[in-house]
Design a protein around this nucleic acid. Structure first.
Lengths: 168, 168
DNA sequence: AGCAAATCCGATCGCTGAGGTCGGCTTCCC
DNA sequence: GGGAAGCCGACCTCAGCGATCGGATTTGCT
């Protein structure tokens, strides 16, 4: 399993929020009922989204949540990272994008440095594939897909970066 | 974590086997020592590779393992599937490639079919990214990468399917 | 003021599966 | 026959996922 239920529930929460959006805050209870998700668990998830700045909350009666940005400005790589933490193909894979690229530090190979293990190439390619798919998908894509279906497929992409066609 | 250590150890086992290859069977003990991996655990892993037909074994003294195909004929998507089972982004994601495409059956949404959840689009894209990266990488790529580095990058790919450059 | 609706948050908890070990068996070369 | 190797089922430990609960706090409404 690549993602946890935190990621799934969180994304569905955002999609629901994007659809129900209308000025007034949306109560978590309403989302939980529509999506058939446990309310108590959603509370913990939405807290992550709030800390990451995707939603803002209004406390007290008639309170709830609102998106802080346009759905088209919310990229899934940010969302997933906020929910599940950094995406690593393997435990020895450290996404050190701050410095130069993605670092792979094999704990076993680390002792005697006989160069990188061959798996580094594989993990890096896989990691790239996942990150690219996430970066190229915004919340707006998911919302458009949920109502209608074709919407998300008409978005223009850089040549050579076509995403697979998905049918409802 | 996308892959388990089974996948990592198994791939490293195959890479090691591809390098040490020379007619005679290679004993697991030798691989375990070179790669600093637990022998007992490797036994369980190599059994999966044998059942999947990637290696053949010779029992008894001076026995060991040999690759059954050329490294360039061993695609990583097959290997990973043999080791970790089918790759699914989420527990509700069923790779039903036998019928038409990839099926997503959300256990929560399944009750009342209000159409597909928006996450289907996301999971399918991610899944596609992973599978493509795995399909485009062969054991030969990894072996070439481990000695030298540049080798794996010279392999020709369909246009628009460039893989990220990986430096040692 | 007081109630109800809602967010907020720390503590807890069961359970599955990853990751690995062990012991004993079989198989084969020398 | 002895030792080196593969084969295999049973077992064990433990982290973290996936929640749940109780209560505190904040706020709108009447």
């Amino acid at each position: 399993m690549i993602f946890t239920t935190k990621a799934e529930y969180g994304v569905r929460l955002l999609v629901d929020l994007g659809q129900a959006q209308g000025g007034d805050p949306v109560a978590l209870k309403a989302i939980a009922e529509r999506e058939h998700l446990p309310l108590a668990y959603l509370e913990r998830i939405v807290a992550l989204l709030r800390k990451a700045g995707f939603v803002e909350s209004t406390r007290g009666a008639r309170g709830g949540y609102l998106l802080t940005r346009e759905p088209s400005e919310i990229r899934m790589d940010e969302v997933i990272e906020a929910l599940d933490g950094p995406i690593a193909p393997m435990s020895c894979f450290i996404d050190d994008s701050a410095t130069d690229a993605h670092k792979v530090v094999c704990s076993h190979h680390a002792v005697d440095d006989t160069g990188p293990c061959g798996t580094k190439l594989l993990w890096t390619r896989v990691h790239g594939g996942v990150v690219r798919a996430l970066q190229q998908t915004t919340l707006a894509d998911l919302i458009a897909f949920e109502r209608g279906g074709v919407g998300a497929l008409e978005v223009r992409r850089p040549v050579g970066d076509e995403l697979p066609v998905v049918t409802a």
